[in-house]
Amino acid sequence: MTNPSTRPAAPQATQSEDIVLRTENVSVYYGAFEAVRNVYLDIPKNKVVAFIGPSGCGKSTLLRCYNRLNDLIPSARVTGKIAYQNNDLYDPKVDPVEVRRRIGMVFQRPNPFPKSIYENIAFGARVNGYKGDMDELVERSLRSAALWDETKDKLKQSGLALSGGQQQRLCIARTIAIEPEVILMDEPCSALDPISTLRVEDLMHELKQRFTIIIVTHNMQQASRVADYTGFFNAEAAEGGSRFGYLVEYEKTESVFNAPREKSTQDYVSGRFG
């Protein structure tokens, strides 16, 4: 076990805070291929955590473990333990649908449902058993996602008719409406223009009052702007020649960007990578 990836990555940064998700020695396999190896990482409550790193380093794969989205891929296998409120997410007694109700997700490409703007939000709430005032919830969610002013006059229009940035904020509003505890964001701005990106980033600052956010991003500036903590992932050639991803270091964002412990992190954040 001299492999660098087996090092538990610095959970001490977060020791003093409430921990929402505990990641202990998690590895993910797709068939025989190992995508992520031996990750230790804790997510503190009401913070924004960013995962950065080059493509193929397994950051999205790990993110998808937190709401058991990997279940949809028949060949995927997760080992190790992810604890959420002292329950193992992968406990056979856990219904993945219940996991996803508490841990929401915003995807890389905006994916509103082929329904009206109103229904896009109401559907998720209804599915989750919401019985209150639906109009009020829709308005509150759209306001939280900074989309209310643009859409209040066309709630009956299709969600697909909105611009890309608006669609992504609609997807965020849809996620907010189900009141999850954690929101996972998989490169939420990669399909958006700079102005829409800025709006989504502003939104994240507001949302962390109420939610814990984990964001995967290619964009280091974005990570430094929005995240309280940053995990840097890298990929390395395994014994057989195939590559596997692992967590290099995980610290407060300032220290990752200003005083990284590892050389590879330094190289990556300063743009000298690969």
Partner: peptide, 20 residues
């Protein structure tokens, strides 16, 4: 993407298939 979105909001397969 639509199917992922359905899973992401915690819809069961039945809810996702019949409503969306």
């Amino acid at each position: 993407e639509v199917r992922q979105g359905l899973v992401g909001i915690g819809a069961t397969n039945f809810q996702g298939v019949t409503s969306v």
